[in-house]
Design a protein around this nucleic acid. Structure first.
Lengths: 131, 131
DNA sequence: CACACTATGTGCAATTTGTCAATAGAAAAC
DNA sequence: GTTTTCTATTGACAAATTGCACATAGTGTG
């Protein structure tokens, strides 16, 4: 079921509930500085595989505008054009802590949602009494 | 920290990572039919307290357009204007199952995110060896 | 030199979201 | 009995976000 493309919403399917990109980028940069192209590849391991490169690069630039990350150009260690290597700022570190709080709440909300759903299912199909 | 209002994004804060409204509405309607105004109140218990009524009503109308829910007007049992009482359709039931799948994945993703974050923290502050 | 891979960026259209304003019936307060 | 409050829903527009098509350019390989 595609979660993208024009008009997909008409077809009764639904897109992901999480907006995860920015937090994951911050987390990756919290581990170590990196440039967009490698970050793009690392997104896979957080369920964000197949993200559009444009979207990732834009997110990084916008986070730099907000002062969450900063970048330096690297023309030496590259297998192509210059790399823009991002690192986390102290503001970005704060923002990441904020996201962690948010995601702790999120986890509780999701847990509650799922728990309620399965509760409904159990109530719909009560266990048959043995005669 | 407000998560709404014009320009809030400039101020370094961040909005919630989850888009939760539609799934929660479907879940509530999975429990029993209801009208928008009461659904609005029930959102509180899923961390969506303070949602704008307009947004909730719109979500319901749009889900009806997509055939996920259906509504009947009730002029009898109301303490005000007629109520539009929504119930889940069988398509809506499928969509809810889809959301449940999505949120199971979401939970795993959030878990992994938080685990990695705390791992970084531990590595930054290694336990001091006793002499 | 043609081609694949690395690396980043621009611009626009479509979609989503937030907010303000409007309407209107019923119940409570005065 | 009329003003106010609570109940209940909707329309229209502005702002923000997202997806996507396209543009650019350096490096390594056959």
């Amino acid at each position: 079921m595609p979660r993208r493309g024009p008009g997909w919403r008409q077809h009764g399917c639904s897109r992901r509930a999480v907006r995860f990109l920015e937090p994951v980028l911050l987390l990756l940069l919290h581990h170590r500085p990196a440039h967009g192209y490698t970050l793009l590849e690392q997104l896979d391991s957080f369920g964000l595989g197949g993200s559009d490169p444009t979207v990732v690069y834009r997110a990084l630039r916008e986070m730099e505008e907000r002062g969450w990350v900063a970048s330096v150009w690297d023309r030496e260690q590259t297998q192509g054009p210059p790399r823009r290597v991002y690192h986390l700022t102290s503001l970005g570190d704060e923002v990441l802590r904020f996201w962690v709080q948010d995601l702790e709440e999120t986890r509780r909300m999701v847990d509650q949602f799922l728990q309620q759903y399965y509760q409904h299912i159990i109530e719909e199909h009560p266990v048959q009494e043995e005669p």
